[in-house]
Design a binder for these strands. Structure first.
Lengths: 135, 135
DNA sequence: TGGAATTGGGTTAATGCTGAACCAATTTCC
DNA sequence: GGAAATTGGTTCAGCATTAACCCAATTCCA
């Protein structure tokens, strides 16, 4: 076995993710959604405030502002001032937003699942454990 | 164990890579290199032609043109017309380019290695096998 | 208290990236 | 051979992203 090279593993991984995302990009935009916007939608439940989203997704704040604005205009997101902290804007998926988010993640699941399918169920579970350990 | 959700694994993975890359971004730019340019440099040995680079890295062709132009201007890359096919531009790292590429990937290795370090050597090898199987 | 420091979010000017269209070399196939 | 199709690479206009700066609400601490 060759020596473990982190950069090599990283690169392998990066290439994999890029290939998957670019293979579904056109299908996602067909939903009326940009891929980056899908990431935001998919993370709103876990991180309902723009600042949290920016940190969680490694996206600059102005970008989040922009995406949220577009998602709200499209009717996928609602935004209300937090009652406790008047600076904060609590975000919430609308039913339409939840639906399109599920469709989008389903596309991603399908494309990535194609690759995942090359692994046994045990290996898939193992992969998840390894990734969680590193997160 | 919960049912395996490919989108969840993908997202976990994506978040991990983004976190790593953004943690080293400033160190990489300190080398006089943008992160995207580092990816190009690191892939030139394996894919010495711009069209190949674009396909391999999932980057549009005009972007590759731009990155290559900058890398050449910085003295990290040499470009010569292929003798067999006059359309092709064969790329080659200069010694300075190789050095900075190694420094860059070393930064990446270090940052990613920090996460990898949470896994045993066996698990690291396993991860690599899984990723290669999916690539 | 009340001023300084911090945090959440927005705006804008400037930069970065890429889709569309292009040219030139090569290959295909009649 | 030579017209048509394909491929490698570039240019440029236009859109997407972000760095720098701003304000308002909150927190901290004397």
């Amino acid at each position: 076995m060759s020596k473990i090279d982190p950069a090599r593993i990283w690169s392998l991984n990066h290439r994999l993710l890029m290939a998957v995302i670019s293979s579904v990009a056109s299908d996602i935009t067909a939903l009326g959604l940009e891929t980056k916007e899908l990431f935001v939608l998919a993370d709103v439940d876990a991180h309902p405030y723009p600042a949290e989203l920016a940190a969680s997704l490694c996206i600059p704040k102005p970008s989040v502002t922009l995406y949220v604005k577009r998602l709200e205009a499209a009717g996928f997101l609602r935004r209300e001032i937090d009652t406790v902290d008047l600076r904060r804007h609590r975000l919430q998926l609308t039913p339409a937003g939840r639906k399109v988010m599920q469709q989008g993640t389903s596309l991603l699941s399908q494309a990535f699942g194609e690759r995942l399918g090359r692994l046994s169920a045990t290996q898939q579970a193992e992969l998840r454990v390894l990734l969680e350990k590193m997160s």
